[in-house]
Design a protein around this nucleic acid. Structure first.
Length: 880
RNA sequence: GGGGAAUUAGCUCAGUUGGUUAGAGCGCUUGCUUGACAUGCAAGAGGUCACAAGUUCGAGUCUUGUAUUUCCCACCA
């Protein structure tokens, strides 16, 4: 009988991989067609790692977006790629070496980089496999890597250009130093954490033996780098003392007592030691007072140069103890007070960051930032949600120069060559053969590499071929949107905007959707150390890629982080299962003769009703898509398909299916297939695999949903009248079902239902037309119609709008129970009547509120009053 | 120290411009192996919308304040 049979159980593993292959083989993810392109460049995952749930979320949302616009007919391009992730990747490789007891220096730079490329290839294979598993509709032909040849050229081009325009400079400054990775890092890569430490009070004696100055410090170990002690110029405690020399204990060096307004008189003793080489404040103060900078640290964070031998190679912690001990022995240590303070940690390695004096390359950011601020003001870019504009502008307003050099081996080596003979510096795209000043061939390239973000910030245009004017660049740039988590606004989003404006004259995208962060059930960030992460691949294996994507879409509201565990994905899995089974039911009922052509279908009220609902869902998705309101999209399709289509429309067709009339059944199935087909197109961006799998079994299906046209909301399909009438039917049905439940009438028990219609009730015909449907839904033998108020004896009564429903059970009704039920309804109605009466008695309301609001209240009141009267009468009847 | 966000049902959260008797999923209760689905069907219980004041005819929604939680930024040694 059944022409098409879907497997009984929804098992995504059976078809997801096959369909992805099918899509790829037919090149369905390449942009096609004419018109305004829709372009997204993937936030490139770090090539070191594997995808975590953040990627699962982010790529699910991008995929929904991209698939929607592709179906809408715009030439749509989603560019894949990965990031070389300098420090992170280098660390992964170094750890591998460490297990063999080696360091990168044992291999040498060339071998090490070679090895890192291999590791990159391994991870890259995993990452692309993962993206395919989750169904990401990326155009793999255009895949890029931040260190491939093209992007290398883009990076060098930008460096040279910025240098020539005076926006890149080299200098010896105090930078954030990661002693673990032994490289400089940018301000943004420093995370401040509160650490419980001590405030050490110590005394520095005057050189002439006339007493001492007491000061407070959190880092006594930097004493050996001190070059002065500073007090506030107006601090009376030190009047007349400024300018005198102190003896720096342990080092036994004379240092001056100076005055500088940056000192806070209230803090500690009002005297602060000055260590220009190891503290940002002191660095500035040192410059103002022309003080020397004494570096006392090795690159690995241990004490090294300019310290007594007994301190060499000590860690800062060991040195701290030793200093305190020696000061104590000298009688110069006063006390250590517990003290909480913020300590910078390197984002990648977690090491405590040392302010460290070194020569680095910087980008002057102010000029770039100004353009980026203007772009927002000019509405060239839009944040979703809008409030992230604040984060963006605040950061740009206070922007500081960007330290871009890293003392690493993995990355873009800085395109600067210095002549060993004459010292001439060459900042050029390609290695020069000879010095252009002295002709020497002894040119040495700067050993440092660039910050990873120095390539990432070019991503939206470098991936399209820039700096060459390629056809892709001309056609697909600027891109349309970027979808990424809000925690990389500084690192990536803002910098991409700056680079885009600076080098292409355009913002690299218009829409910026900041995704929520995925957290665990307790709201904690997912992390390896906590072990609370969810592997997206495990979710795919257990529930399927559609469950992953739909759940993510359904839960992504504007700006609220998502807390969930793996069970949370049951939401999507259950929905997919529902789609599967509804489709299975429908397909198995297609008769051998097949479905009727659209022209031969005769639509009834219920068909018009479901069309209107479908139309409403389409409209909601369109509106939500334009505003990046993902949860609204998810709810729209979920509610439509489950609550409207399955619970009412499909159930209604059973009347036709079981009427034992092949003609009626064929009509019904044919109409169902049409609605299902359109629903599948509607849902495809959110549940891509299952919709495609079912679609390809439909009679007369097209080639693929990927390129099928997206449903279009059509006002002509809205049908408010049927909407209201069908609502009436639902209300009637629910009333009877509730009685059944409350009086625990078993389903097999026959009931007789009579609908009493008020004279002149406008929708009486509608109810009469659907007598059989109402009977099916209420589980009664048949439905009789009568006049409102004229009811058989011993029935249960439900009061509705313009009608009443009388339910007769074959044996006697439980009178006390019915009285209770009526009383409850009366109380509720009476309460409502009172509240509306009060509202209408308020002159201010009647005068102030819009006429239609007042009118609505009046009619509601009238209706409730009538109901109340009837209910009271029926109760009295039972009591009398 | 500055800024953002949150506080709605037992849990996790929706609620766009102020206007029906505030919703969903999960969980819970009751009844159902109804010819697609027990990953299901039907019905139900459960909320002083953190607190206080204010604006308004009308506030979950707007204003101010308070409390708690949380995130980001910031050189107080």
């Amino acid at each position: 009988m059944s022409q098409i049979e879907l497997p009984k159980v929804y098992n995504p593993q059976d078809f997801e991989d096959r369909l992805y292959e099918f899509w790829l083989k037919n090149d369905l993810f390449s942009p096609r067609g004419e018109g305004k392109p829709f372009v997204v460049a993937i936030p490139p995952p770090n090539v070191t790692g594997v995808l975590h749930m953040g990627h699962g979320l982010n790529n699910s949302l991008q995929d929904a977006l991209v698939r929607y616009w592709r179906m809408k007919g715009r030439p749509t391009l989603w560019v894949p790629g990965t990031d070389h992730a300098g420090i992170a990747t280098q660390q992964v490789v170094e750890r591998r070496l460490q297990k063999e007891g080696k360091t990168r220096h044992d291999l040498g730079r060339e071998k090490f980089v070679e090895l890192t490329w291999k590791v990159k290839e391994e991870h890259h294979a995993i990452i692309s496999q993962q993206l395919k598993k989750i169904g990401a509709s990326l155009d793999w032909k255009r895949e890029r890597f931040t260190m491939d040849d093209g992007l290398n050229r883009a990076v060098r081009h930008v460096f040279v250009e910025l240098y020539n325009r005076g926006l890149i400079y080299k200098g010896r400054y105090l930078v954030n130093w990661d002693p673990d990775a032994q490289t400089a890092i940018s301000d943004d890569e420093v995370e401040h954490k509160e650490v419980a430490g001590f405030l050490y009070h110590i005394k520095y004696p005057f050189a002439d033996g006339s007493g001492h100055v007491q000061l407070a410090t959190t880092r006594p170990e930097t004493l050996l780098g001190d070059v002065a002690v500073a007090v506030h110029p107006s601090d009376e405690r030190y009047t007349g003392l400024v300018g005198k020399l102190l003896t720096l204990p342990i080092a036994d060096r004379p240092i001056p007592l100076i005055a500088d307004p940056f000192v806070d008189k209230e803090f500690g003793t009002g005297a602060v030691k000055i260590t220009p080489a190891h503290d940002p404040n002191d660095f500035e103060a040192g410059r103002r007072h022309d003080l020397p900078q004494i570096n006392i640290l090795n690159p690995d964070g241990t004490l090294g140069p300019n310290v007594p031998d007994r301190y060499k190679r000590l860690t800062t912690q060991q040195a701290r103890k030793k200093i305190v001990q020696e000061l104590t022995d000298l009688g110069l240590f006063v006390e250590a007070q517990p003290h909480k303070h913020q300590v910078g940690h390197a984002q990648r390695s977690g090491a405590v960051v040392e302010p460290y004096l070194s020569e680095q390359w910087f980008v002057k950011m102010k000029p770039l930032a100004e353009k980026a601020l203007k772009a927002l003001k000019d509405d060239e870019i839009r944040f979703y949600p809008k409030r992230y504009e604040n984060t963006y502008t605040t950061w740009l307003d206070g922007i500081r120069d960007w330290c871009i050099s890293r003392q690493l081996w993995w990355g873009h080596q800085i395109p600067v060559w210095t002549c060993q003979a004459c010292g001439q510096v060459h900042v050029v795209m390609d290695a020069p053969e000879t010095c252009d000043k002295c002709g020497s061939e002894k040119l040495v390239q700067d050993p440092d590499v660039l910050d990873t973000w120095f390539s990432s910030w070019l991503w939206p245009f470098s991936t399209l071929g820039w700096p060459d004017q390629t056809p892709d660049l001309a056609k697909y740039y600027p891109t349309t949107a970027v979808v990424t988590a809000y925690d990389i606004i500084f690192f990536w989003v803002a910098r991409m905007i700056m680079a885009g404006l600076e080098f292409t004259g355009k913002a690299p995208f218009r829409d910026i959707y900041m995704t929520p962060l995925v957290r665990d059930k307790q709201g904690r960030k997912m992390s390896k150390s906590l072990g609370n992460g969810i592997d997206p691949l495990e979710v795919v294996a257990e529930y399927g890629a559609d469950a992953l994507k739909f759940t993510m879409v359904y839960l992504s509201s504007q700006g609220q982080d998502i807390n969930l565990d793996k069970d949370g994905f049951k939401l999507g899995s259950k929905f997919a299962n529902k789609i599967w089974n509804a489709s299975r039911y429908l397909l198995m009922n297609i008769p051998d003769e097949g479905v009727l052509p659209a022209g031969q279908l005769v639509k009834n009220d219920v068909d018009l009703w479901i069309e209107g609902r479908l139309n409403g869902a389409i409209r909601t998705v369109d509106e939500a898509m334009a505003a990046y309101r993902y949860n609204d999209m998810g709810h729209a399709i979920y509610d439509f398909f489950w609550n409207d289509f399955c619970d009412w429309y499909v159930e209604a067709t059973k009347l036709e299916f079981y009427a034992d009339d092949p003609v009626r059944k064929r009509q019904a199935v044919s109409k169902l297939v049409l609605v299902l087909e359109e629903s599948l197109r509607l849902m495809h961006p959110f549940l891509s695999f299952i919709t495609e799998e079912i679609y390809q079994q439909l009679p007369g299906h097209g080639f693929s949903l990927v390129t099928a046209p997206y449903p279009v909301a059509d006002p002509k399909r809205d049908n408010p009248q049927v909407e209201v009438q069908f609502g009436l039917l639902k209300e009637l049905v629910r009333g009877v079902r509730t009685l059944r439940s409350e009086f625990t009438i078993p389903p097999e028990k026959d009931i007789a239902v009579t609908v009493g219609l008020a004279p002149g009730f406008a929708d009486a015909d509608f109810l009469k037309r659907h007598r059989d449907l109402a009977a099916l839904f209420t589980g009664s033998e048949g439905l009789a119609f009568g006049v409102m108020g004229t009811k058989p004896a011993g029935v249960l009564t439900v009061v509705g709008k313009g009608y009443e429903t009388y339910v007769q059970i074959l044996d006697l009704i439980d009178v006390p129970k019915e009285k209770d039920r009526l009383k409850k309804t009366i109380d509720k109605t009476a309460g409502y009547v009172t509240s509306v009466e009060k509202k209408l008695a308020n002159q201010a309301f009647v005068a102030g509120a819009p006429a239609e609001v007042v009118e609505a209240e009046r009619s509601k009141l009238a209706e409730a009053q009538i109901n109340l009267t009837r209910l009271k009468a029926y109760l009295q009847e039972l009591e009398g």
